[in-house]
Design a protein around this nucleic acid. Structure first.
Length: 125
RNA sequence: CCAGUUGACCGGGUGGCCGCUCCGCACGAGGCGACUUUUGCGGGGAGGAAAGUCCGGGCUCCAUCGAAAUACGGUGCCGGCUAACGGCCGGCGGGGGCGACCCCAGGGAAAGUGCCACAGAAAGCAAACUACCCUGCUUCGGCAGGGAAAAGGUGAAAGGGUGCGGUAAGAGCGCACCGCGGACCCGGCAACGGGGACGGCACGGCAAACCCCACCGGGAGCAAGACCAAAUAGGGAUGACGCGGGGCAACCCGGCCGGUUUCGAGGCAGUCAUCCGGGUUGGUUGCAUGAGGCCCCUGGUGACAGGGUUCCCAGAUGAAUGGUCACCACGCGGGAGCGAUCCCGCCCUACAGAACCCGGCUUACAGGUCAACUGGCGUC
């Protein structure tokens, strides 16, 4: 924990369906335990949302996936860039993967998703 | 000690580090105010099934939902408990088990209609295929008439069973025992149980076939419903006037109203004026003090009821109740030791996540605890 402003409170939580649909049109980076989507937005502070579909498992398993991803996102909070929205789609491997590996893969995925399209992903009009 | 039955209960623990949500308090900031918010402290934060959404309620709205009849649906031994139930408790009857105990859609078949497949001569009212007996005839192979319902065979079921007597052969034809029906008597609130004069036996099963009887039931659901803020009409409220027929008039009749009909009471429909504003999105509320929980006393076989004391015990809404690390229990595997035990490794544990709230039912579930009881074996 080197950076001081990496507090979770700085992360805005996505809540509306339209925000999730917009993020789905952005760039993607897949990993075994999750799939990351990112898109530019007008709000300054970065937004984060979680999606775990019913196909993934029953209710306790889906809760556990979302909670582990949420904690991993908190650990990688410094990597999220301003004026962007992110959506994490959970997969079943997020239940069993060691937490350290999960954090490492998430931080790497954030870097990759920004490197692939340069500094400014496609913005909405 | 082994095997089993029933009931009740638990369903990982402790400690670091970092977080989420709600409530209360304090301080600070903003605001005229209601209030909002930063920080700190204290406290609460998934289940026995939160699940399936199968019943029953509370609550809310639907055009007022009252009465009767009918239709439809549900329930179905008796008594009790409950707000209510298709639930629970206690009995009764039937079936299973050596037993503790378990299981049962268990009202009515002389109110009526219907069905009883296949097989079989015959499937509901008595009848008679083979075989049996008697008489007559005979070409000696049988044929005709009559008797009888014991034997054979079919079936889930064939019109009481067994034995003796009886007879031409037989038959409740007679008798004994068993079974069945049963006026009446006794016990019980009742379901039902016990006895039973008498009756030679008649009255088969199916109501998870229609049906009959008794009782219960309006519909939709918190995305109910109420309010606030943003954006457009086909919407709503109030007031006034008013429609068709009859009558001089007062007045009467007329259309629609949550299965249908009738009755009762009430409402709605047209035009104009005024006022308010829908669908959708976001927010607030409903939204957590309740048929509430622990403990104790009293009554009751029990479900439960009454009284006392004490507690406040989840409220999210892309959805909080967590993430991670260490240790310890528990379990499994391996090794050492006669043994108590010790060491190492693994799983770091089942079913499963509140969504308005209660009472049940059903289904899923690794492992474990306790109590009572039953049947064996052993010891004193």
């Amino acid at each position: 924990m080197t950076a001081v402003p990496d507090k979770t409170g700085a992360l805005r939580r996505l809540k509306k369906r339209s925000e999730f649909l917009r993020a789905a049109r952005g760039n993607r980076a897949g990993r075994a335990a999750f799939s990351l989507q990112a898109i530019g937005t007008e709000t300054a502070e970065p937004g984060i949302g979680f999606t775990v579909t019913k196909k993934t498992g029953n209710a306790p398993e889906r809760n556990r996936i979302r909670r582990r991803l949420r904690e991993a996102a908190r650990a990688c909070a410094g990597g999220f860039q301003p004026r962007h929205d992110y959506v994490l789609v959970g997969r079943r491997e997020a239940l069993s993967q060691p937490f350290g590996k999960l954090v490492g893969e998430l931080c790497a995925a954030i870097k990759k998703i920004h490197a692939s399209t340069g500094a400014s992903p496609r913005d909405k009009q």
